[in-house]
């Protein structure tokens, strides 16, 4: 991606048509190909892992069961016993984001969670879902969520708009957090990778800084894996917390 002396750190985020002429005719992008891969991996892990139906699970079955019980625990701990209803959604969301983040760490793989349009769509769906759940469970009483309790009445005209604003800003914080984390990490990887190529080709004196950049990239890869898992977890936990607010109103 590094051409000449310019580092094209953003070229890796460029979308292009995928899956040949058929995909191109419906604007199927490389991001969507990675989504298909992620979905196939999620379903494949669950299907292949659970095929033995062993009483004492093997590694893949343990992975499938741990993810099941981990996400279920997250749902029931955060939302309460109503969390079971949202478990399949949270599981799909967590898996979708996690696999998108993790697959992006592989070289030449596109990271669909590094696109604000994708994360914004996910966040928009989460916010719409929580609002729908709140209205469905509490009716118009749901709007009491925006009225803080135990506050002087005089302050309410000031506080209610702030509450509404903070509710809407969930959309931004949820989507930008994931997008910015993934993008920043990949830009760093690209930049230090370019350093390795450029300095390595610059002659004998460049070898040491090139090696240093390579070491930084190795550390960054490990860091990226951590961020990938952490951000997927944060996304899922925040979704659970928002659902908790919608179900319980505080």
């Amino acid at each position: 991606m590094a051409s000449g002396s310019n580092i094209d750190a953003l070229g890796q985020f460029t979308l292009h048509r995928s899956l040949g002429a058929l995909g191109a005719s419906v604007n199927f992008t490389n991001a969507n190909t990675m989504m298909l891969v992620a979905g196939a991996l999620i379903l494949g892990t669950l299907y292949v892992g659970m095929r033995p139906k062993a009483m004492v699970p093997g590694r893949l079955q343990a992975l499938a069961e741990l993810s099941y019980e981990g996400v279920l625990g997250m749902c029931t701990d955060t939302i309460g016993h109503e969390g079971r209803k949202f478990f399949p959604f949270i599981f799909t969301l967590f898996g979708f984001v996690l696999l998108g983040n993790l697959l992006g760490v592989f070289p030449l793989f596109f990271t669909y969670t590094s696109h604000i349009a994708v994360t914004l769509a996910l966040a928009l769906f989460v916010v719409l879902l929580t609002t729908y759940v709140g209205l469905r469970m509490h009716g118009l009483h749901f709007f009491s969520y925006f009225v803080p309790q135990g506050v002087p009445k005089a302050l309410l005209p000031l506080l209610v708009p702030i509450e509404v604003l903070s509710y809407i800003s969930r959309l931004i914080s949820l989507s930008v957090r994931l997008f910015a984390n993934m993008m920043a990490g990949h830009v760093m990887l690209e930049v230090f990778g370019s350093f390795v190529v450029m300095l390595g080709g610059a002659g004998l004196l460049g070898l040491f800084p090139a090696g240093l950049s390579f070491a930084v990239n190795v550390a960054l890869i490990g860091f990226e894996v951590l961020v990938a898992v952490l951000q997927a977890y944060v996304f899922a936990v925040l979704t659970c917390i928002y659902l908790h607010d919608a179900v319980h109103l505080h």
Partner: peptide, 17 residues
Amino acid sequence: LTISQVVWGALIFIVLY
């Protein structure tokens, strides 16, 4: 493609769900 990936992504997500 910026929007089309979201449309396809939504479809893929729904099918995955």
